[in-house]
C-alpha cells in the first residue's frame, strides 16, 4: 500500500483547496487554495477571507492540542497567519497550500517549544483539570458504566501525554488529511520516520480507548 499518497481521514480540514483537487473540481465549486492565495497576492482580500475560513479551525485545533495552551495557541495562530500574509509575494503553487500553511505552523510551534522549554511535562495539568470536572473515576470499577465524558477525558489525557513528535504527526494527520510523505515534509523527517511516529501514537491512544470498551467491543478496536 502506498502510504505516502494515502490521504488522511478528511476529518476536519477542508481538503477542497488542494492543488490536485482543483483539477477535478466541478463547475461552480469553490476556488482552490492556490487560486485564492494568488488572488490575495493581487490584492483580493475576499480571497484571503475564504482561505482563512477554510483553514482556521484545523490550524487552531492543531496549535491548541500541540501546545496544550490556549494562550500559546492564540499567539501562534496569529503568528502563522502573519507569516502567510507576509509571504504572499513569494508564494508559488508548488505544493498544497495545506502543506505550506502547516509547515509554517509546525516551525512556529517548534520555536515556541524551544522558548518554553520541555513541553511534555507541562500539559498534564490541563488534562488533570479536565478529568476533575468529569463525574467519578469509573474506570477503577469494572462494573461501572463508562460515560462518554470519561472516555474523552482519558483519550485527551493519552493524547496530551504523547511525545511531542508523535503528537505532532498524529495531529497533522487528523487535522490536515495529508499523506505521510507530506507530513514528513512538514516535520522535516523521512516518510518512514513519520509513519513510525504515527504507529506509536496510535498504539498509545488505542490503549487508552481499550480500557473503556466492553469485552464485546474489544475486538472492534483497531
Amino acid at each position: 500500500m502506498d502510504l505516502s499518497s494515502t490521504p488522511g481521514p478528511q476529518p476536519l480540514a477542508a481538503a477542497a483547496g488542494d492543488v490536485t483537487g482543483a483539477a477535478v473540481s466541478t463547475i461552480g465549486a469553490a476556488p482552490d487554495d492556490a487560486t485564492l492565495m494568488l488572488r490575495y497576492r493581487k490584492g483580493d482580500v475576499r480571497a484571503f477571507e475564504m482561505l482563512y475560513e477554510r483553514h482556521k479551525g484545523a490550524l487552531y485545533r492543531y496549535l491548541q492540542r500541540l501546545c496544550r495552551s490556549q494562550e500559546a495557541a492564540n499567539d501562534l495562530f496569529q503568528e502563522v497567519w502573519s507569516k502567510v500574509i507576509a509571504s504572499r509575494e513569494r508564494y508559488e503553487v508548488r505544493a498544497k497550500f495545506t502543506t505550506f500553511l502547516f509547515h509554517i505552523a509546525h516551525n512556529c510551534a517548534i520555536d515556541y517549544f524551544r522558548r518554553a522549554g520541555r513541553p511534555q511535562e507541562k500539559g498534564a495539568q490541563d488534562v488533570d483539570a479536565l478529568a476533575d470536572e468529569l463525574p467519578g473515576p469509573g474506570h477503577e470499577s469494572p462494573d461501572a458504566a463508562l460515560s462518554e465524558a470519561q472516555l474523552r477525558a482519558d483519550f485527551k489525557r493519552a493524547l496530551d501525554e504523547l511525545p511531542a513528535e508523535q503528537r505532532d504527526v498524529f495531529l497533522l494527520y487528523e487535522e490536515t488529511g495529508l499523506g505521510l510523505e507530506d507530513i514528513g515534509r512538514i516535520t522535516g523527517v523521512a516518510m518512514e520516520t513519520a509513519k513510525s511516529r504515527l504507529r506509536y501514537a496510535l498504539g498509545k491512544l488505542r490503549g487508552a480507548l481499550r480500557q473503556h470498551q466492553s469485552p464485546t467491543l474489544q475486538s472492534s478496536v483497531s
Binding site: L12, Q64, E148, L159, L202
Partner: peptide, 13 residues
C-alpha cells in the same frame, strides 16, 4: 477508526 472517531469528539475551542 475508533481513534479517529474519538479524536473528532474531543471538545475544541
Amino acid at each position: 477508526s475508533s481513534v479517529s472517531r474519538q479524536y473528532r469528539q474531543l471538545p475544541g475551542a
